[in-house]
Structure formats: C-alpha cells, structure tokens
C-alpha cells in the first residue's frame, strides 16, 4: 500500500517556531466588542494601567456592557488564589453566555484564573489575559505531582518530594504551571 497523501498533508506554508511558553505583549490587549457583560480582574498588577485601559475600552462601546471589577494586591494574592475555584464558580453562576473576563497581573495568578475559567466553561476567546508581572513561576513535579512556587527562572526544589527540578519552557494552562524535570543530584565521588 503506497504512502497516504491527503490535501492537508501537501501544504508547504512555513510556520513560525513556537513553544508552549506563554508570551505576553508589552501592553494589555484591547477588549473586543460583542460581550454583554465583563468581569475585570487586576491581580498583583504593579500599575493601574490594565484596568484603566479596559475601563476606557468599555466606555467606548455602545451599548456599554456592565462590568464588575476585582482588584487584589500582591500581599493578599496568595490567600485569594486559594479560594479562586469556588469564587470563580460562583461568579460564573451569576452570569450567562455573553459574559467574558479580562485578567491582568502576576503570571501565575493570570494562568490560575484562566484555568478556573476553563473549568467553568469559558472558551479561550472569552478571556483576555495579560501578565505584566513575571516574578516567579509555579513548577509541576512529574514524580509527585506537587506544584511549587519558584523564585528564580532556572531550578527549584520540589515542595512535595524534595527533588531538584529544572524549570522547562513548557507550560500547562490547565495547571497554571511549568514542567519541572528531574536533576539527578551527583553522588559523592567514589560511588558507582
């Protein structure tokens, strides 16, 4: 049997290289028109700029859709994130199709909200995401499945099993975390 060909397989269009690491533009994206309600979130964002930008976008729409606004500062963020799944489910239950969200702030918080939004049934086109703070990543350990906050960009010790992990440029939106791969730590000289 000869190799299969299919119109889609014969395409020659060049495609830009990409990884699964999220890339954030320098300024927050504009809110698209069409939604009937918005929830805007600013989570540990150092500036009021994303919210201000989005409020201006909304004011320019006719009719102007109603928006609820959530602002959490850096210090309160960890506590808020712990309650996120319940909070988001309740927020979704108050709304109907036509509702969209826009989230700005620390990358780990933005990814966590995106994951909660997906769980609640929102599609990627119903979320505007913008990370303007990249102070640390959440790292997933494949050995034990724990997710650990990493301060640096390079390595972290797993908070679940203590193993040393290299942080890979491979991000799971669902978990809001990057993949860590095991570093086999050198034994003492003389060992096999």
């Amino acid at each position: 049997m000869p190799p299969l060909t299919h119109p889609a397989a014969a395409d020659d269009i060049a495609w830009p290289p990409r990884t699964s690491r999220p890339e954030w533009p320098p300024s927050p994206p504009a809110l698209p028109p069409g939604a009937t309600a918005w929830t805007l979130l600013s989570l540990g964002s150092p500036s009021g700029e994303p919210l201000a930008r989005w409020r201006r976008d909304l004011a320019a729409m006719t009719p102007q859709p109603p928006a609820s606004v959530v602002e959490i500062d850096r210090e309160a963020l960890d506590g808020w994130l712990a309650l996120l799944p319940l909070w988001f489910a309740a927020e979704a239950a108050r709304n109907v199709v036509g509702w969209r969200i826009a989230v700005a702030g620390e990358e780990r918080a933005v990814l966590a909200v995106a994951a909660a939004a997906r769980s609640a049934g929102l599609l990627p086109t119903e979320m505007v995401l913008h990370a303007d703070v990249a102070n640390g990543k959440r790292v997933y350990c494949p050995s034990c499945s724990a997710v650990t906050d990493a301060a640096g960009d390079d390595r972290v010790r797993c908070g679940g099993c203590g193993r040393l992990l290299v942080i890979q440029p491979h991000c799971s939106r669902r978990r809001g975390a990057y993949l860590g791969t095991l570093v086999h730590e050198a034994k003492e000289p003389g060992d096999a």
Binding site: T36, A92, A93, N95, V96, V97, G98, W99, A120, G121, L122
Partner: peptide, 9 residues
C-alpha cells in the same frame, strides 16, 4: 433563550 443560557452553553 440566547440571552439566558448558563455560562459554557
């Protein structure tokens, strides 16, 4: 109906 469906419909 289109204005009252649960999020995710």
């Amino acid at each position: 109906a289109l204005r009252c469906q649960p999020v995710g419909s």
